[in-house]
Design a protein around this nucleic acid. Sequence first.
DNA 1: ACCTGAACACCGTTCAAGT
DNA 2: ACCTGAACACCGTTCAAGT
Lengths: 202, 202
Amino acid sequence: MVDTDPVPRGQRADARRNRDEILAVARDVLAEQGTQASLRDIARRAGVGLGTLYRHFPTRDALLETLLREGFDRLARLAETLRETHAPDEALARWLQALAAGAGAYRGLPSSLAAALGEPGSALGASCRALRDAGARLLLDAQERGLARQDVTGEDMFALVGAVASIAEPGGPFADRRDHLVRVLLDGLAPPAPPPPPACHA
Amino acid sequence: MVDTDPVPRGQRADARRNRDEILAVARDVLAEQGTQASLRDIARRAGVGLGTLYRHFPTRDALLETLLREGFDRLARLAETLRETHAPDEALARWLQALAAGAGAYRGLPSSLAAALGEPGSALGASCRALRDAGARLLLDAQERGLARQDVTGEDMFALVGAVASIAEPGGPFADRRDHLVRVLLDGLAPPAPPPPPACHA
DNA sequence: ACCTGAACACCGTTCAAGT
DNA sequence: ACCTGAACACCGTTCAAGT
């Protein structure tokens, strides 16, 4: 368990206050404008110089990562819990629904996450890779018991869930179809139907 | 059949030449940089003033639409052909593969198309809606014969294919998995497995 | 009729100057 | 140690001035 970029202790009081205010404002602005929101706008609305925002969050991803860390950690823990308490196919189904909800929290978030996934140095990318691996373990469980198709990888599955989340972004026309579209994906991940049993009186 | 924005006849020779050059350059630049490429850059490389680009293509969508029209028309015709020559499920499978290829021709294209789909005045949006409707007809055929699940609409399906295309964009890590991921989606669109026949000697 | 590029209002990012 | 905002290099978009 890596703890990247913990809340800096021993900050000056004004620094601490600025950081908190930036995060609070960013949450609102991202909810309104999506992950491509203007950083200038966030600084402005937080009553802070633009350089202050950059000092606390040197990249847009760093800001996103801080906003999402809590939810992402929860998702990683959820995967473990479901693994212990449910059959592999059911665990996979529930977890992918939760993942779609988390990855689609803001407009533009799925594609931000997909982009970060590749970036080697990005803390946000590291969080994504951790989630992807947690999902891959659930998938493997299901595959080992014949409850998921064999020709799909954890990478495939993570990308597919992100894709579904991206068409069901908040505010969009498919927002309230998200669960259903994830269901369609889950059915696609199911193992191929077994051949029918031989007929009687063969 | 609407023919929006046909190639303007009776243009001045220089206008015609500029238009052609812009389109040729745009094809290259979009292939390199995706649909978010700088319009300034396109004008520059076409050896044309920025205003000239805007005169010929008042919006980015208008430029995209002109570039894509041919392929989109071909896709619409393909839907009709497949309808006449194949079983509904096979027609759907082949057409969605072709659609994914077309909608993913450039980086960023799937999300450009999804955005245009909503825009009422956009010619690109109109092209998308035509494709979506062509797909909806294929889906309906399949549904009527029990070859596709009932709880999915043409809108759902079009969005899902676009989503899969967006994760398999050219140059990306999933580019060569596109057909396979579309296959997963197709399996998700299949009707639920019928209950097994009653056992013998019941 | 068409072309041009300067002008405007925005970005993201950096950094010298302040406290 | 931290904050500020001007400065720079880019955008997209518009439009007066040219031919």
